[in-house]
Design a protein around this nucleic acid. Sequence first.
DNA 1: AGCCACATGTAATGCGTTACATGATTGC
DNA 2: GCAATCATGTAACGCATTACATGTGGCT
Lengths: 179, 179
Amino acid sequence: MEKQMHTKYAILGLLTIGCQTGYSMKKMMDGSLNHFWKISYGQIYPTLKKLLDEKLITVQEESTSGKPDKKEYQLTSLGWEALKDWMETPIQEIGVEKNELLLKLFFSHHQSTEITLKQLDHYHSKLQERLNTYHAIKEMIYGTYGDQEEAKFWLLTLDYGIRTTEAANDWVMNAKNVL
Amino acid sequence: MEKQMHTKYAILGLLTIGCQTGYSMKKMMDGSLNHFWKISYGQIYPTLKKLLDEKLITVQEESTSGKPDKKEYQLTSLGWEALKDWMETPIQEIGVEKNELLLKLFFSHHQSTEITLKQLDHYHSKLQERLNTYHAIKEMIYGTYGDQEEAKFWLLTLDYGIRTTEAANDWVMNAKNVL
DNA sequence: AGCCACATGTAATGCGTTACATGATTGC
DNA sequence: GCAATCATGTAACGCATTACATGTGGCT
C-alpha cells in the first residue's frame, strides 16, 4: 500500500455517501468534514483520474442536451474492497497538529505578560468562533440528513470537534490564571 | 511577510532558548515541542542558510583542534525584531488537524459495529500512549528545566496536549456507548 | 571492533494549495 | 445584464519528509 494516499480513500468514501461528482465531493468536504479534513480541486480531479486507472471507480459522462459536461463516478467492486480494507485497518499514528499559538507560547518568556494574555484572548475568540461553526453544522446535519442512518456517524465526528475545542477553551482559561 | 514560514520563526525562537546548532534544535523539537510541532533536518539547515542571507542570524564556526565542524548561530538585532513582531501578531487561523480515525468513522455506516468499535478501542490505546508520553515529558521538564523561568510556558503547552487528549478519550468512551 | 551520540548537509519525492482558465444554467 | 452556483481541469509553487552521504569522539 502507498504511504499516505488518504485522499484516495476519502474520495472512495465520499462516493458511498452520494457524492458522485468532483464538485459535490468538494462541497461535502467543505460543509460537513471541514473540521477534520480538507481537500482542493487540485487533488480531487487528478485523484479521480488515478482511481480510474486503478479500476477502483468507473465514470459515466453526462452530456444530456445543452447541459454542461458532468462526470458521475461509481465505485467498482475492486473499489469497494479497497475501501473496506482501508476502513478496517487501524490507524498507524495520530497526527500531530501544528499549533502556532503553542509555538508562540513556548517562546513567550521574553515577552510581556500583557501581550501573551492578548494572544490567549485572541485564541479564545477563535475557538469560540469554531464552536459556533460546529454547532451550526450540527443543526444543519439534523435538518438535512437527520433521517439518514449516516447522520449518527457524522454527528459523532462533530462531537469530537466540540469536545476537544471545549477542552482547549478550558485550557485557555486556566492558562490566563497561571500567567 | 511570507505566507507561512513558521519554520523560520520556530528556529529564531529556538535560538533564544539555548539551541545554537541545527542538531540541538532538532533535539529540542523532538524532546519538548513534539506534541505540537515537528521539524526535520531537511528544513533546518536550508532555513538557517536563508536566515543568514536575511541577516537575521549570524554564525560562528567552531573548528577547534580535532573536533568536527560545528556552527553556532546567534540572533542579530534584526532577528530579535523579526521574532518579536511575529510573537505579537495574533494567529490568523487555527489549523485543521487531519484526523484519519474521524475520516473512517464518517464512512462507517457501511461497516459492522464490531469493526467500528475495534477502531475506537485502538484509537483509545493510541491516545493513552500519547498521554503517557506527555506525562513523561512533563516530569522531564520539571527535572531538567524546573528552575528555569521558561519551564512555566513549556508546561503550559504540555497541559494543552494533556487536556485535549483527555477530552478525546472521553469522546471515545461516549462514542462506544452511542454505537 | 562496533555502536551511539554529535554534527552537517543535499536530492528526490510526495502531498497539497493557489491561481489560473473555461463555460453553462438559474434566478434576480 | 449580472451574480451565483454548478462543473471540470491544469500549472506553478510551497512546504515538508525521506533517504542518502559523510565524518568525529567516546565508550564498552
